[in-house]
């Protein structure tokens, strides 16, 4: 069976939800599809302190729920926990297959955002939650008094390390460069902490579990020598990647890192297809900038349909 909408928005993060609020409120029939629940990265952010309109920090999942409810209020239809298996964005009528159903539209807004980068080394997937973690606030206390490795040297890695230091006995930071990329004030706090040591210019090559302990193999990127560490756990914060796996063969233009290129109206190289938010090639990735992108894409769609 086929279902038609004026616009289909892929991704229910701030960019997609902002776009939906505008299009649905303008009477443009709107479907939002998300492979997960609504809210994007915001629903998994503990507190947001820089979104205008909230004097006190707002809980991320609360802000996300409000955005979704606001879009629903104007008649947006949602397909959540849904898998897009096929799509054609090239013609005047776009179509997508979602869990076996076909959806067509005149316009598509891609707002699939970004996700934490996996290292894609042996053992990473298998040991997630049993020695490998991606969230200090969630899992830090399981490692109270233990020795751990943190992978990464950017802002998240260093901020999460400071949080982990409230629980753990020691941290070894494995970082691919010779210096930290995090903001100096945070980086200095970690560098000066007596419980922290560094393995510079190294990258993990594999993880194994031996009894309760984790065995980490890391390559020295300068000498190619492999070192083996034995610790109790590993926390990985290796940056973000755009969510474009389903868009690879659609003809959409992307930059070298996979971010979708647009003009300032959020239009991509494919007529009727727009990209908004973190998935777009741009410098600043924030909730406010995503909401701004979503708004612009929506206004373009409203004008065109």
């Amino acid at each position: 069976m086929s279902h038609h909408f004026d616009v289909i928005i892929i991704g229910a993060g701030p960019a997609g939800l902002a776009a939906a609020i505008y299009t649905a409120r303008a009477g443009v029939s709107t479907l939002v599809i998300d492979q997960s629940s609504a809210g994007g990265q915001v629903k998994t952010t503990h507190q947001v302190a820089n979104y205008p309109g909230f004097i006190e920090p707002v809980l991320g999942h609360q802000l996300a729920a409000n955005m979704k409810k606001q879009a629903e209020r104007y008649g947006t239809r949602f397909e959540l926990a849904a898998d897009i298996t096929e799509m054609d964005l090239t013609g005047d009528a776009k179509w997508l297959k979602v869990d076996g159903e076909t959806y067509t539209s005149k316009a598509v807004i891609i707002a699939t955002g970004s996700s934490p980068r996996l290292l894609n080394v042996p053992g990473e997937q298998e040991l997630k939650g049993s020695g490998i973690s991606y969230c200090a606030t969630c899992d830090g206390e399981f490692y109270t008094g233990k020795d751990i490795v943190v992978v990464g040297g950017g802002n998240s890695a260093m901020e999460e390390s400071l949080m982990l230091l409230q629980h753990v006995n020691s941290i070894t930071v494995i970082h691919q460069f010779d210096t930290l990329q995090a903001e100096k004030i945070t980086a200095d706090k970690v560098m000066q902490h007596p419980k922290v040591s560094f393995l510079w210019s190294h990258e993990p090559r594999g993880f194994e579990k031996q009894g309760e302990r984790m065995v980490i193999k890391a390559e020295n990127l300068k000498t190619q020598e492999i070192v083996t560490l034995e610790r109790d756990g590993v926390f990985i914060f290796a940056g973000m990647l755009p969510n474009v796996a389903i868009l690879r063969n659609t003809g959409l233009q992307m930059n070298a890192y996979g971010y979708i290129t647009t003009n300032e109206s959020m239009a991509t190289n494919l007529p009727g297809v727009y990209a908004a938010g973190d998935v777009r090639d741009k410098r600043y990735r924030q909730i406010t900038t995503s909401v701004g992108d979503g708004t612009i894409a929506a206004l373009e769609v409203i004008r065109s349909v």
Binding site: S37, A38, K43, T44, T45, L59, H61, A81, Y134
Partner: peptide, 17 residues
């Protein structure tokens, strides 16, 4: 779980399913 970043998506997916 708790109301944390790794738990919230699972509750919400449960709600949809």
């Amino acid at each position: 779980g708790r109301m944390g970043p790794m738990c919230i998506p699972v509750y919400e997916i449960f709600e949809v399913l």
